[in-house]
Design a protein around this nucleic acid. Structure first.
Lengths: 352, 352
DNA sequence: GTTAGCACTCATCGATGAAGAGTGCTAAGT
DNA sequence: ACTTAGCACTCTTCATCGATGAGTGCTAAC
């Protein structure tokens, strides 16, 4: 499958892909010849293109049109290009200095905010849609503080803070047969008793305790146990697709918009990517699971702190994405953000 | 301006508007006559329509087309219709029971979540775009708890909880010349000293104190003072516009998508609406400030607790919105949600 | 093995014209 | 005086047609 192309074929494939990225339209033999000043004549290029089409790297919308790279063609292009010295998108130096500013007085405790700010900037530069995701509850985290506060006559507010600064809150109805003061005292016991235990461990221990206690206590504890935190997802510049000719029809735009509303599906994608790759993931066209993502490329990186997944950021654009700019940019972001997290984040647990 | 129409004109205006809402296309005299079984002949209707056009309630895309209501026409229609006994949209009974379920075991402490759940349901029924907004810091709120917790060697986490259950958190760098323990003790003083003072008051008092204290202390306090909370905004089913013929062009869709990314502008709109009206606000077409909102109608209600604005919810749809369904629905939601908040919310402050 | 030449294909675009919906006016009806 | 039927007229929509031009694939010459 992954045949290695000879030099000439590679040059022509590469030129076709680059041309298509630039023009957003099928590129013909003549265009490849002229645009890239190749020494091969259009006729030769045509022959090579026909070969490339046979291996499945290029297609033909119709007889008299130029060639379009297939996802497979893009994949070969991405895998075999050396982007390391590629020019970052215009505005990157500015981004870098802004990024340093953002990171210097922020803490990973506010990860979602920081990543949002970053992707906001990034989408301004790249003109693709940005995604920021923060993973949900991380059960391995340790308890930093647990507090129960009076809210109304019948309810209390339980606030649970983990060592990474995650704040979980939950309104607790005062169980029948218990007074507010009693419940608060109970909360204080919990706070002192379980401090710096992991959340899973606390749950386990509470489960055991529950048997020995009365009904009312059980009710209180089970309410406490249900404190959780949903993963969060934010999108930036979803309107970027409206600028692209291949998404100029209302129908395709509709597909995209509907897809962006399926937060659960998007979340799953990032979850899967994290299990597969730790660096920059590139999913081109049909490599994406969602139908609506098939005309798109997703470039994503996870944000990790010592093997614990905190969240991810990604860019979604057309298949003819400016890989030469986006990939180096994401490599850079991955390195910088993960370094920042490791350096400034509160300690994370080692075991589960 | 607000001429009162005679019976016949009103019937015909009303039929035209209703017809246009239903057909999404200019409606002609014949259609009005047939569709609504009016006793006036097409010719008469034509005459009346010409009159209505002269007063500015209807327009003409071109000579041989039917009539379209102007925003002014819609406004008259909305103001003079009695929607009170109008049928709620299909699925409303189900919504009501779901709503009761949601409200029964939720607290206004999680207002954003609750409103999000509600609007998620509502947008499923109405097929319009939903907006949920939670207002930001409410300085009049009283302090319920303030806690400083160790996070890393050089930083602490300050967690501030207000009486409405809002949790504000902020990472505080340990000021030079102070130890972590000292800072934590300082936080505890603050907690006991200022409990149940309003946030503004606390800020005022801290400002005064600051003068008497050393550099390091000042630094700590000023970090604490900067704790704040941004307003939040969520959109639901923005793709609803893709189903409407009047937004079927990619260009108009683009406008809509870009507008929905302008969170600040949307926020401002809700802020202004709250100052103007306490019930259901209806902004039709050109009555909206944003250019991109001109082909839209916004129906919004604020969520209040004793004159304190907690947030808003709204529906955005085409100008030819199903007012007869949406308005009663929003009236109902306004009543039910505000009642719920007043009944179950933690006490809110009276003065500033 | 490479390239020039040429016939052929096919999408795009503008012009043309028929169809159809709806108006506005006039004149007749009540 | 108000209402309605009739009819010419307007203007959009849609399909058809043909010209245009880009680009290919093949063949034959280099």
């Amino acid at each position: 499958m992954t045949d290695t192309l000879d030099e000439r074929s590679w040059v022509i494939l590469s030129a076709t892909v680059t041309g298509y990225i630039r023009m957003a339209a099928p590129v013909g033999s003549r265009a490849v010849n002229r645009l890239f000043g190749l020494s091969y004549s259009p006729a030769t290029i045509r022959n090579v293109m026909a070969d490339l089409e046979e291996i499945g790297y290029l297609t033909h919308p119709h007889t008299s049109a130029g060639r379009i790279p297939t996802p497979k063609g893009f994949r070969y292009f991405v895998d075999n290009s050396d982007f390391s010295k590629g020019a970052l998108p215009a505005g990157t130096p500015k981004l870098e200095s802004l990024l340093e500013g953002v990171l210097s007085d922020a803490s990973p405790v506010d990860l979602l905010d920081v990543l949002s700010t970053v992707m906001n900037l990034v989408t301004r530069i790249t003109h693709y849609t940005g995604i920021v995701m923060e993973s949900g509850v991380r059960n391995g985290e340790r308890l930093l503080s647990f507090e129960v506060l009076p809210l109304t006559e019948r309810s209390l507010l339980a606030v649970l803070i983990t060592e990474t600064g995650m704040v979980l809150k939950k309104v607790i109805m005062i169980p029948e047969g218990l007074g507010a003061a009693e419940v608060i005292a109970l909360g204080e016991d919990l706070n002192t008793g379980f401090r710096s235990c992991t959340l899973v461990r606390i749950r386990e221990m509470l489960m055991k305790e529950i048997e020995h206690l009365g009904r009312a206590y059980v009710e209180f504890f089970s309410q406490v146990l249900s404190v959780s935190r949903q993963p969060e997802l934010k999108l930036f510049r979803t309107s970027s697709f409206t600028d692209l000719p291949e998404f100029s029809s209302a129908a395709t735009l509709r597909e995209i918009m509907v897809m962006f509303e399926e937060e659960a599906a998007l979340f799953r994608i990032f979850e899967e990517l994290v299990h597969e790759e730790r660096g920059v993931s590139v999913r081109i066209g049909s490599e994406n699971p969602l139908p609506a993502l098939q005309p798109c490329t997703l470039v994503a990186i996870p944000i990790m702190n010592r093997n614990v997944w905190l969240g991810s950021i990604g860019l979604i654009g057309p298949v003819r994405m400016q890989y030469d700019q986006v990939i180096p940019l994401m490599v850079y972001l991955s390195r910088r953000l993960n370094q920042w997290v490791e350096e400034t984040a509160p300690l994370l647990p080692l075991g589960p």
